[in-house]
Simulated assay, not measured.
Amino acid sequence: MNDTTPAAYLHAHQFAALAPGPRLIVTGAVHGNETCGTQAIRRTLDDIQNGRLEIERGLLTLLPVTNPYAYAKKARQGDRNLNRNLRPGNSAGDYEDRVADVLCPWLAAHDVLLDLHSFHTGGQPFAMLGPRNNAGQLEPFSHEGEEERLVAHLGARCVVEGWMQAYQRGVERRRRLRPDAPVELLDAAYGVGTAEYMRSRGGYGVTLECGQHDDPQAPEVAYHAIRQTLALLGMARIPLQPPAAQFTVYHLEDVVDMDHSGDTLLRPWASFDPVAKGEPIGRRHDGTLVCAERDGYVVFPNPHALPGNEWFYFAVRSSRTLDV
């Protein structure tokens, strides 16, 4: 077996307290080159196994490496992006589809998800927040308050909402401009990842972007978030640190794809860099400028995106506040 041979299994660690309580699952390396969560989860495992941490209520499942193939490759994905179009039932598909057949039932068996990620370029940690309570078609939800309180205690002062709405707009554009794109890129459920799937099964989940991939502080951010989550849920005797005094909440308005390998960003953008209406953000391979349609912010810029995949996101300030 060589280092990039896809693993034939997922390895989770589970701790079931004798007293009832919440069911929490913590995931790392959904993207294989995002290892801060893996490091933090393994540190938490060491704490438990060496008696420094005891799970006293509920069920804790720790999954250090959610995508073993991508992790072995030290790449974002194995065959495809696991955190898009996540659903079970396609075991004859690619590697990530087979992972989904195992992962999705695990998510559905829990109440709360903490999914630990990192990002390509510079910027401060931020949390991804789900929708307000609603009974709509796109992402019905009923745990707004619980999810906001979790986000507020994770340590990040920046919060991003509007993920599924941005992807809905992105998919509509693809259908209009690139009807010959791979079918999965045209699927209305393309934006469904771990947290979105968790919400669709009646739970709630937070994706925490802990910092740039190689930032030595990112594993510390992830480790702090795990402990804060355990404290907030009352699963372990850990002092709960208070939330930040204030947060900045951004609403994702759009996702812009890289169309060609020759597309380039015009500067080394970092998440939450401000842009003015009409300001160029990138240049297509044919010289066409991609400009901001209104005043806002660049989020998740990825100069190394694959053609047909997300190049950057555009956000505006949200009026939403957190229930802490």
Rank of each mutant, 00 (worst) to 15 (best):
A7Q: 10
Y9Q: 12
A12V: 11
L18D: 12
A19R: 12
P22Q: 11
I25N: 08
V26I: 15
V30K: 00
V30E: 03
V30P: 00
G32K: 00
G37F: 06
A40T: 08
T44P: 09
Q49K: 15
Q49W: 13
L53V: 08
I55T: 05
I55K: 05
I55Q: 07
L59P: 00
L60H: 00
P64Y: 13
N67L: 10
Y69R: 11
Y69H: 14
Y69I: 00
Y69K: 10
Y69N: 07
Q77V: 04
Q77P: 00
G78Q: 10
G78R: 04
L86D: 02
P88T: 09
P88E: 15
G89P: 06
S91C: 09
C104I: 07
A109P: 08
H110T: 03
H110S: 06
S118V: 07
T121R: 10
A127P: 02
M128I: 15
E139K: 00
F141K: 02
E144V: 01
G145A: 14
R149I: 05
R149Q: 15
L150R: 02
V151I: 07
G155C: 14
G155N: 10
A156I: 09
W163Y: 12
M164H: 04
M164W: 02
Q165N: 09
A166W: 04
G170K: 10
R174W: 03
R175Q: 13
L177D: 13
R178Y: 10
R178H: 14
D180S: 12
A181Y: 11
E184D: 15
D187E: 13
G191Q: 05
V192N: 05
T194H: 10
T194W: 08
E196D: 08
L208Q: 11
G211F: 07
G211H: 05
G211V: 02
Q212R: 09
H213R: 11
P216C: 12
P219E: 13
E220A: 14
Y223P: 01
H224M: 08
A225Y: 04
A236F: 03
I238S: 06
L240F: 01
P242C: 11
P243K: 06
P243H: 08
Y250F: 15
H251Q: 13
V255Q: 13
D257L: 12
D259L: 15
L265V: 01
L265P: 01
L266M: 10
R267P: 00
W269D: 07
W269M: 08
W269I: 05
F272K: 02
F272I: 03
P274I: 11
A276N: 09
E279D: 10
G282H: 07
G282V: 04
R284S: 10
D286Q: 07
G287N: 11
D295E: 09
D295L: 06
V298E: 02
F300S: 05
P301F: 01
L306G: 00
N309G: 01
S319T: 08
S319R: 06
R320I: 08
T321W: 06
L322T: 02
D323H: 14
